[in-house]
Design a protein around this nucleic acid. Sequence first.
RNA 1: UGGGGGAUCGUCUAAUGGCAGGACUACGGAUUCUGGCUCCGUAUAUCAAGGUUCGAAUCCUUGUCCCCCAGCCA
Length: 574
Amino acid sequence: MSEETLPRPERSDDGPGNFVEDIVRQDVAAGKNGGRVVTRFPPEPNGYLHIGHAKSICLNFGLAQKFNGVCNLRFDDTNPETEDVEYVESIKDAIRWLGFDWGDREYYASDYFEQLYDLAEKLIKAGVAYVDSRSLEEIRETRGDFYTPGQDSPFRNRTVEENLDLFRRMRAGEFPDGSHVLRAKGDMTSKDVKMRDPVMYRIKHARHHRTGDRWCIYPMYDWAHGQSDYIEKVTHSICSLEFMNHRPLYHWFLDQIGAPAEERPQQIEFAKLNLTYTVLSKRRLQQLVQSKLVNGWDDPRMPTLVGMRRRGYTPEAIRAFCDRVGVSTRDSIVDITLLEHELREHLNATSPRVMAVLRPLKVVIENWPEDRIEVFHAPYDPEKRDGLSREVPFGREIYIERDDFAEVPPNKWFRLAPGQEVRLRYACILRCVGVVKNEKGEVVELRCTWDEGSRGGAAPDGRKIKGTLHWVSARHGLPAEVRLYDRLFKVEYPMAGDDKNDWLKHINPDSLQVLTGCIVEPSLANTQPLDRMQFERIGYFCTDLDSQPGALVFNRTISLKDTWAAIARKGEEG
RNA sequence: UGGGGGAUCGUCUAAUGGCAGGACUACGGAUUCUGGCUCCGUAUAUCAAGGUUCGAAUCCUUGUCCCCCAGCCA
């Protein structure tokens, strides 16, 4: 074993760990950066955060927590034409909602414009940056391509004095957009196209959401980002795979400004998140919003954090998911069932249970007196028996789910059918003795009798009742609208097509189904937006932002697993 | 035709020359006043070929496939 071989990194007990964590752990153990760990989450404020960003947020903030470091929130606001404070606020909300706190470490690349400018002058004085006064087209044409080297700009040999003068006048606003750029003197013959005299500054007479009209030149990403990391003393600058191509330039700029070896940030790339049945690029998400395929950025079908919040996702579930998917350097597409699993897991543990009937079918209990009302006490949490319960009134007329009755029951049917018994949850045992149909032959009402010994739902003789149905008293139930959400795309890989616009063809036309005429139990009368609950036997729901007392609206966050659906499907096939 | 990366169950991820493990999914069963939850079980993987080695997912060679790069976007 050579002396240079580093010891195998110890894995921590909490969580699965990943290669980035291994690197940080080794760095800390080796005393690099004096053992400090500083990460950063660097969103550009030009869009809403989505589940993919959550992975990065969890990684960066998680690393800081794990190693007693800090994580900066830094807005990468170097392109005023696309950025806005609206996004800054939404990004901060989303990060807070996810459960992370950046304390007072809220930074903006625009806060460093002056320092960045000074550094740029330093590079000019050192002869490694020059003002190129050609058009965008000319610059592009002479950059060469993957196979042919670029050619030096005729302005490459301007004197330091001339460059300085021009650059200062660029800043002073003497030139129109596109007339000059500041370029670094890289190597126009480099096989690495990024090194062919990268542009550092461009002229943009645009108002910036923070600096207003103070600047009319703005730094490019490659120049701004690494130097901002350095200014903030970031130790580990974690970004996605496509920036791997930028890493040589990242280090080259750090070399040029004379960043001491022991203080320079290290760029580490990881594979960003992709999800089945989902698109996760800002541009495409924006397209969905603008073309009104969804109702805004917070549409519950959107993979944005605001959308997921409105849908009823919990931050805990999203964080658990991010931990679970791991971090690696290979492109991957995570099965959305993993996300759904974490969601159900957390919702199952935390959601109060209530009853709601989505597609009501009236049931008249013939041997129950007309005006007799019974109030049952039903626990909010049947598993933990935490003592909390609500009152659920019961009477002669109730509603059950249409799907819970079959005139001709298929195999293994545990639910209601003529002559068959079921239990009404927490209420009693019921037998169907008659079916009322309309002139079209549709079932409109069920006539039933109840077993008078089964008050509360227990069988007096201990007989097994296989099926238990949810129900709502007709007299006490509250009307409600329920919005059923499904995956936004019909296919697993919407982006798989050769044609770049094929993904839009895979939109699921049934991703939103609005049910009116639903009936929920009276305990929900005062529910507030974003309250979460389980509708027993149906799924997890949350009260929508549109909901009001007297006009209740619920979103289906996710259905319960439905074993019966699989059995029924097989019954049909077989 | 250049450069930079990457290939492990259907999916995500472990392994750092020494029993290919875990989770999700799927399937089967037990339990159940939610056809939920829980519990138990089953199935499925090292891109290919060659080499080094007692021993290879791991090292070497050759090949194949996938991703990224030619913004005055980030």
